[in-house]
């Protein structure tokens, strides 16, 4: 029983990280109508920035995270401006998708060039050891608790932002009909830039939490969590903010439980198997809407 609870809490924590990454995927997809396959690598960039400032230069971890958030935000805005925006009206939507894959390889290889291929050992940004319940039979790490709380705070913040602010309303309008949004006087470019900024800032936060829970850092650290978060976003219903949250949590819990009870080698296969099943049974995901148009 205790081992199940331990796995469940760990799954919740991993799921929270997937959720934060999936939020970035889903917002960019919903508003800019593109899959930013470099999103996972923004996480890796965030990890290295924190690593440099915190582990190497001895800066306070919170300050290092703030620096990573700022730099990742700038990276996201620049990538959108330089690589994606010129292709936004390209004849084929594949053009921007392939560019995103290109950006992904570019960032990975840039990190390889700067930091080398060897694994860096990341110091957790949460020094708190955690709590011990049931006379020590259930140990929950500090980073686990912090991760779950941070993801909940982010979800609440995003929901309030989207539904209560002018900029959030502009995002909703652009996600539903970009042309009509422009006719309302909404600056579509600015709205998309803001979306990339938020998504990239979230990637930095996810990076801090991910590298603290799994403290080995390589140029490919972000790739697999990025893809799994994409699966989570599709599972929850891509474009939906609560959907990304639910998808992330479900995926994280399934992954950890499969690792514990079935096979750690098979865990990833199970995760991607779920994607296939979901796409067959419910192509719109858990909270996705059926797209129906009134003519």
């Amino acid at each position: 029983m205790m081992s199940f609870l331990t796995s469940f809490v760990n799954g919740l924590s991993l799921g929270s990280i997937y959720a934060i990454i999936a939020l970035g995927y889903t917002m960019v997809y919903g508003i800019a109508k593109m899959l930013n396959f470099a999103h996972g690598d923004f996480i890796m960039v965030g990890c290295y920035i924190i690593f440099i400032f915190s582990s190497n230069l001895g800066l306070n971890p919170v300050a290092a995270i703030l620096i990573a958030i700022v730099l990742c935000t700038l990276l996201g805005i620049t990538t959108e401006r330089v690589a994606y925006r010129p292709l936004r009206n390209a004849a084929s939507p594949l053009a921007v998708l392939i560019t995103a894959i290109g950006v992904s390889y570019f960032l990975e290889n840039l990190a390889l060039l700067i930091f080398g291929a060897d694994t860096k050992s990341f110091t957790s940004v949460v020094p708190w050891a955690g709590i011990s319940l049931f006379g020590g039979s259930l140990q929950i790490q500090g980073i686990t608790i912090v991760t779950i709380l941070v993801s909940l705070l982010i979800l609440i913040f995003l929901q309030l932002f989207v539904h209560k602010t002018r900029e959030g309303q502009a995002m909703l309008a652009v996600s539903q009909d970009r042309g009509a949004a422009m006719l309302m006087g909404i600056d579509v470019n600015k709205t998309i830039t803001l979306t990339f900024a938020i998504g990239s800032a979230l990637a930095a936060v996810a990076g801090a939490l991910l590298a603290s829970a799994y403290p080995s850092l390589t140029p490919y650290t972000g790739a697999m969590p990025g893809i799994k978060a994409f699966v989570a976003a599709v599972l929850g219903g891509i474009g939906s903010i609560p959907g990304a949250m639910i998808g992330g949590l479900v995926l994280g819990i399934i992954e950890i439980l499969s690792r514990t009870y079935i096979s750690s080698q098979l865990a990833d296969a199970i995760v991607f198997g779920i994607l296939v099943v979901v796409l067959i049974v419910r192509p719109t995901g858990i909270l996705g809407k059926n797209i129906q148009e009134k003519v």
Partner: peptide, 24 residues
């Protein structure tokens, strides 16, 4: 002038096919 700034100048368009924000 960028399109989104023309609304404030006094130009409003009712697009073909209505294009209301269906989820709002």
């Amino acid at each position: 002038v960028p399109g989104h700034l023309r609304v404030n100048m006094g130009i409003a368009q009712v697009p073909e096919g209505r294009r209301v924000f269906a989820d709002m």
